[in-house]
């Protein structure tokens, strides 16, 4: 973006030729409801070769590192002492998601898969695995609630086709 393009965009908006869609403001308002006081943020880190859930070999990764259209996307999030691996399959109408918390978070832990409008709760397996299906395309965050420790929330990711 250069200054000229910004100035033109500002002129367009001010002229009413490019009004800010109402949805943009209402979604910004809704973000307030997603606060998670006290949560630790897990940042996205570069996926490593062992990122695949259950240590399966990386499926569908081409030699240039990009993933084929229908193959899952692998994301690894790390916070101090906790890693969350997520494998997302992008389908036409929805997302399917499988993941694993390392180390396994122990008894009583819950994994919350959040979108701006829906949250799903999963109880991870003994090895920390969890899965869900039918998520909408768009923004996504995974929160691991543990007993006696602050929740760990991944940074929000926008997953689209």
């Amino acid at each position: 973006m250069n200054d000229d393009e910004y100035l033109l965009a500002a002129l367009r908006i001010a002229a009413g030729a490019d009004p800010v869609p109402a949805r943009v403001a209402s979604e910004a308002h809704a973000v307030y409801g997603l606060r998670l006081p006290g949560a630790v943020t897990a940042s996205l880190v570069a996926p490593s070769p062992d990122t695949a859930i259950g240590a399966r070999p990386l499926p569908g990764v081409r030699s240039n590192g990009s993933t084929a259209g229908t193959e899952p996307r692998l994301l690894r999030f790390a916070a101090e002492g906790l890693t969350i691996d997520v494998e997302i399959t992008v389908c036409d109408s929805h997302l399917d998601l499988a993941g694993q918390v390392h180390p396994a978070p122990g008894k009583g832990a819950r994994v919350e898969i959040r979108t701006p409008h829906v949250a799903k709760i999963r109880f991870p397996s003994e090895s920390g695995e969890f899965a869900t299906t039918g998520l909408p395309h768009g923004w996504l965050s995974i929160v691991c609630h543990r007993v006696g420790d602050p929740p760990v929330a991944t940074r929000w990711q926008c997953i689209r086709r």
Binding site: A28, W139, R155, W156, R160
Partner: peptide
């Protein structure tokens, strides 16, 4: 895409 960029900024503010 512009809506995604704006929404990203609000979510980053939250984080």
């Amino acid at each position: 895409d512009a809506a995604d960029a704006v929404q990203a900024a609000w979510l980053r503010l939250l984080e």
